[in-house]
Design a protein around this nucleic acid. Structure first.
Length: 572
DNA sequence: GCCGTTTTCGGCCCGACTGTTTTCAGTCG
């Protein structure tokens, strides 16, 4: 049994909720929440850290007590204190706190007054009109609870970044028409380019908030106005997405951008530096006493606390503050650094465009090279190529390359890694390729050990070059298959292979943490679109965002190399 | 329950908004 970080974090969060309902010391409650955040966001599993004999109290917000609790959780899967608290306080009360507008105090009132212990109890009480009589509640709160319950599904809904962009773009265009608007930026995890976002945080500067808020709440996609003030409003859109809008004066724009871009952990770290220097930092600026000493630009805010400007993608408190202090932030890869694309399909397998169409589209994007990586024979659903068809495609590519100017097509294949770790095509044909892209497309449910060994064995093949979409996950659709990524990346390094960051918006596979792991091991990463059409080639942008979140610099990315250097790397 | 360049105790972010109250507690980010 492997206890995942997310399970440990869930236990701590539930414990925090229940303790808060019981009226425990709020700082103790916060300590559990902070610890949950640390554990959830930590790139290595607590189980692995412990088996490596590492000291968990080295982690932020983890002290002796919580280190001990993590150890017990990893060993037994249980948290005795949580079980003890659940004896006194029904665990479902923690779920009630997920209803927007219900916090610990109100859940406690409902529990004490009406014996509400579950979502069902709450529904019945609200429908029967009993909630309005509880002290602290009224008709309005009762109505609100009913409305929230209608939409409550029990699962936190996060939207893929690319889908959030579809929502944000037209909304931003609309908001730009608001009276008196000066600047507008979508902040939050959207600006940090996280792979999924929970809600949209939009920041606007304007002299007067009121006209902007009127305009905002009148947006045609707004389904419900949750709150509306002069400087802050919250709405739900028809799509279910929550949008928070903040209006600040222009002198506060930088401070507000830092504040609302987050992450929370990053902001706390920055504010701590401020406190050391005698400053108070909030969304309105950097203050020395009552005097604002900075805040107009982000750069000015960071400089006040002795840091250079930190790219939003890094703002997770994963070492960026320390790096900025030393002036050692990475020079992150940009879309302009990308010189080619090493994963694309054509009509030969399951793509929608021909070799030539794909080549021309890649040239349009300014690329020097595009690798054609149609599926191999095992993937029959995708019309995978057998030896004969691949050899024929190789000839076609050679012919096309003579004809094409300004772009070179590379001969490759997305070769299936079979269950026993062998590759789906014989070496006699693989050696004719410029390089191979190898991936798992079936038997996702092998044990962690078997799946890991399958990949390692495949890499033993001399013709294995790039490990594609290493986890197989589809964001919000399919969990990653179980592997020991650290061990796999170690093997990638030993065999001088490359790991792919698949830029398909649903995949984004490597994760940001995986990229960071690769960088630490000094492995090269291929940011590749896995394009199944000419328009798919555009997904490079999302891959670059993810790479930036993983601290990758141009020298870490294999497709930032010019063609000759790239070819030398494959050594064919 | 964590943390420490004010260090083993005494702090721990705070401003905006709502709804129920009657001057403010609770929630949220």
């Amino acid at each position: 049994m492997t206890v995942h970080n997310s399970e440990i974090a869930d236990s701590f969060e539930k414990l925090a909720d229940l303790l808060e309902i019981e009226g425990a010391n709020p700082f103790r409650v916060r300590a559990y929440r902070n610890a949950a955040r640390t554990v959830r966001g930590y790139p290595r599993s607590m189980a692995d850290l412990l088996s490596d004999g590492e000291d968990l109290t080295e982690l932020p917000d983890i002290g002796d007590d919580l280190a001990e609790k993590i150890q017990v959780l990893v060993k037994t899967g249980e948290l005795p204190l949580l079980q003890e608290v659940e004896q006194r306080t029904p665990e479902a009360l923690s779920e009630l706190m997920k209803i927007q507008g219900l916090g610990a105090r109100k859940v406690k009132s409902l529990h004490d007054a009406l014996e509400i212990n579950s979502i069902e109890d709450l529904e019945q009480a609200a429908a029967a009109g009993r909630i309005r009589d509880v002290s602290g509640f009224g008709e309005k709160s009762e109505e609100k609870i009913l409305r929230r319950l209608e939409k409550y599904s029990g699962e936190e809904k996060r939207t893929r970044l690319i889908d959030a962009e579809e929502v944000a773009r037209p909304l931003v265009e609309y908001l730009k028409e608001a009276e008196g608007l000066k600047d507008i930026v979508v902040a939050g995890s959207y600006r940090r380019r996280k792979e999924t976002v929970g809600d949209l945080d939009i920041l606007i500067t304007a002299k007067k908030g009121s006209p902007v808020m009127d305009h905002f709440t009148a947006y045609e996609d707004v389904e419900e106005v949750v709150s509306r003030g002069e400087t802050r409003s919250t709405v739900y859109l028809r799509s279910g997405m929550q949008v928070d809008l903040r209006v600040v004066p222009q002198v506060s724009f930088g401070a507000a951008q830092v504040y609302f871009t987050g992450s929370k952990a990053h902001n706390i770290a920055v504010r701590k530096l401020g406190i050391k220097r005698g400053y108070k930092i909030n969304e309105y600026g950097v203050f020395e006493g009552d005097k604002r000493v900075s805040g107009k630009t982000e750069k000015a805010v960071y400089e006040k606390v002795g840091l250079c400007w930190i790219p939003p993608e890094l703002r997770e408190n994963h070492g960026e503050v320390e790096a900025a202090k030393k002036g050692k932030l990475p020079q992150l890869v940009t879309l302009e650094d990308i010189r080619g694309n090493l994963h694309a399909h054509t009509t030969a397998s399951d793509g929608h465009n021909t070799l030539e169409e794909m080549a021309r589209a890649a040239r349009e994007l300014g690329y020097e090279y595009l690798a054609i990586t149609d599926h191999s024979r095992h993937l029959t659903v995708a019309n995978g190529l057998d030896e004969k068809r691949l050899l024929k495609q190789i000839q076609e590519i050679d012919k096309l390359n003579e004809k094409l100017d300004g772009i070179v097509l590379l001969k490759s294949s997305e070769v299936d890694i079979l269950e026993d770790g062998t590759l789906d095509l014989p070496n006699s044909v693989l050696k004719e390729l410029d390089f191979t892209v190898c991936a798992i497309h079936h038997k996702f449910d092998l044990s962690r050990k078997k799946q890991t060994e399958r990949v390692l064995r495949a890499m033993d093949n001399h013709y294995f070059n790039i490990l594609a979409h290493p986890s197989g996950r589809l964001i919000n659709e399919r969990d990653p298959y179980e592997t020991d990524l650290e061990r796999i990346l170690q093997a990638v390094k030993e065999r001088s292979c490359i790991v792919e960051l698949n830029a398909q918006p649903k995949r984004l596979d490597l994760t940001d943490e995986g990229c960071r792991m690769a960088k630490d091991l000094e492995i090269k990463v291929s940011i590749a679109t896995d394009a199944h059409s000419t328009t798919d080639l555009q997904h490079m942008r999302g891959g670059v965002y993810q790479a930036r979140r993983g601290w990758l610099e141009p020298e870490d990315v294999v497709n930032c190399l010019p063609l000759d250097k790239l070819k030398a790397l494959f050594n064919r």
